[in-house]
Amino acid sequence: MKYIVLISFFMASALSAQLSKFSDRDLYEIGKVWGLIKYYHPAISQEKADWDAVLLETLRNNPKSGPDGIIKNWLNTADQNKFDEITKKRQRM
């Protein structure tokens, strides 16, 4: 009986490992771009959009377009959000 439980556990873990949605390289690229947009895009850094929710939604839905399509979609989404004008600091002499 113990062997049946162990075998079924190993089979379930092996099948779930094969069903991963993204490769490690894809996750690396997606994570780097997500962080860059989150902290440096004006609309997102001013918290005009919930960028954490965008990441989770993307990972849940698993688009077929791959990392390049995900990044293009994110940039389009970020550019559609309005942001406050960025004022330049004046240098005093």
Results as ranks from 00 to 15, higher is better:
M1P: 05
K2A: 07
K2F: 07
K2R: 08
Y3G: 13
Y3F: 12
I4S: 10
V5C: 06
L6D: 13
I7P: 07
I7L: 14
I7C: 11
S8H: 10
F9K: 11
F10P: 06
M11C: 15
M11A: 15
S13Y: 09
A14R: 14
A14T: 15
L15Y: 14
L15Q: 13
Q18V: 08
Q18E: 11
L19R: 10
S20H: 12
K21Q: 07
F22N: 07
F22I: 04
F22W: 12
F22Y: 14
S23I: 07
S23K: 11
D24V: 10
R25I: 15
R25Y: 15
R25H: 14
R25W: 14
D26S: 15
Y28W: 13
Y28I: 12
E29R: 10
E29P: 03
E29G: 04
G31D: 13
G31Y: 06
K32I: 14
V33K: 11
W34R: 00
I37L: 06
I37M: 01
K38W: 03
K38P: 02
Y40G: 08
Y40S: 12
A43M: 03
A43F: 02
I44Q: 03
I44H: 06
S45I: 05
E47M: 11
K48H: 05
D50Y: 01
W51V: 01
D52Q: 00
D52F: 00
A53I: 00
L55M: 02
L55W: 00
L56W: 00
E57G: 13
E57W: 05
T58I: 01
T58K: 01
T58M: 00
L59W: 04
L59N: 03
N61L: 09
N62S: 07
P63Q: 03
P63L: 02
K64G: 02
K64L: 05
K64I: 03
S65W: 03
G66V: 03
D68L: 07
G69N: 01
G69V: 01
I70H: 04
I70M: 05
I70V: 10
I71A: 01
K72I: 09
N73I: 04
W74F: 01
W74A: 01
W74S: 01
L75R: 12
L75T: 08
N76P: 07
D79R: 15
D79H: 15
Q80D: 14
Q80R: 15
K82E: 12
F83Y: 15
D84A: 08
D84L: 06
D84Y: 06
E85P: 06
E85S: 09
E85L: 09
I86Q: 07
I86K: 05
I86S: 04
I86G: 03
I86H: 04
T87P: 06
K89C: 10
K89R: 14
K89E: 13
R90P: 09
R92S: 13
